[in-house]
Design a protein around this nucleic acid. Structure first.
Length: 258
DNA sequence: ATGCCGTGGAAACCACGA
């Protein structure tokens, strides 16, 4: 079973690329972030025609998340990260697919830091950590995937020294990620490739993709009960080179059948 | 060292992203 995550940076503007990627790689489940579309402008028919069931939580202009599943039922668990009724950003959606509990998330960017946006990022991170603890304690096979907007270590940044004051790499941000991981989650890419330079994002300018000046900020976190099934993981980095691509590349994992 | 590009929406620029 292949599960993927892809920050599409605009689901409608990205539709041809998204459909081509779905057709070429045929993930069984695909988690999308940054739809940048309200609920009523989600391209439902095109996704259905591609063979996918889908649930989504949109928002005008910004954010927005979706879970797609090919030929499988999607049982929605929730579409709000608990802990702040005032937070109206569409950054989280959660479902049960084929017995797997899947959380699809778009963690706030947090720049400029310090400042209110960075405070919001850290608060969101704390809420995610509280929620994740309950998920991992439940024992259900769980995957928390999406755009975390965190480079966990220096290994995940093309030029770490340039990023130390950035919201994606500040000590507080990395500490928050470490605190979450300490609950017992497995970073799928790092589990299989502990020493390899792997990026999931390349800026649109300065020829970042051509220079491989990237960041690893899209992650798959696996609970202990599903980590045992991890067979393979990777980044579809060629997709980043397509015309009208997102600035992120899709990330995927392959799970063994139970 | 830097939104230099890209997207969406509103209004012929601005907010936002990482």
């Amino acid at each position: 079973m292949r599960i993927a995550t892809y920050n599409v940076n605009g689901v409608n503007g990205r539709l041809p690329v998204l459909l081509r990627w779905l057709d070429e790689t045929k993930p069984d489940v695909a988690c999308l972030q940054e739809l940048k579309a309200p609920n009523e402008k989600f391209p439902l028919q095109a996704i259905k025609d591609a063979g996918y069931n889908v649930i989504w939580h949109g928002q005008k202009s910004w954010n927005g998340v979706a879970i797609l599943a090919r030929g499988m039922e999607i049982q929605e668990i929730g579409r709000v990260l608990p802990g702040d009724p005032e937070d109206l950003h569409s950054r989280y959606i959660e479902a049960l697919v084929d017995g797997i509990h899947i959380g699809c998330l778009y963690l706030p960017n947090g720049n400029p830091a310090p400042g209110p946006k960075f405070d919001y990022k850290l608060q969101w991170f704390e809420r995610l950590t509280i929620h994740a603890k309950a998920l991992i304690k439940s024992g259900t096979p769980t995957i928390l995937t999406g755009d975390y907007n965190v480079m966990p270590t220096e290994q995940d940044v093309y030029k770490p020294e340039r990023w130390v004051n950035d919201a994606l790499f500040r000590p507080e941000t990395r500490a928050a990620f470490q605190k979450l991981m300490a609950q017992g989650w497995t970073d799928a890419i790092r589990k299989l490739y502990p020493d390899k330079t792997i990026y999931t994002f390349w800026d649109y300018f300065r020829n970042a993709y051509e220079r491989d000046a990237g960041l690893r900020i899209d992650h798959f976190l696996l609970s202990p009960s599903i980590e045992k099934r991890l067979k393979a993981a990777g980044v579809d980095r060629n997709v980043r080179g397509w015309e009208k691509s997102s600035d992120h590349g899709p990330v995927w994992i392959e799970l063994a059948d139970e």
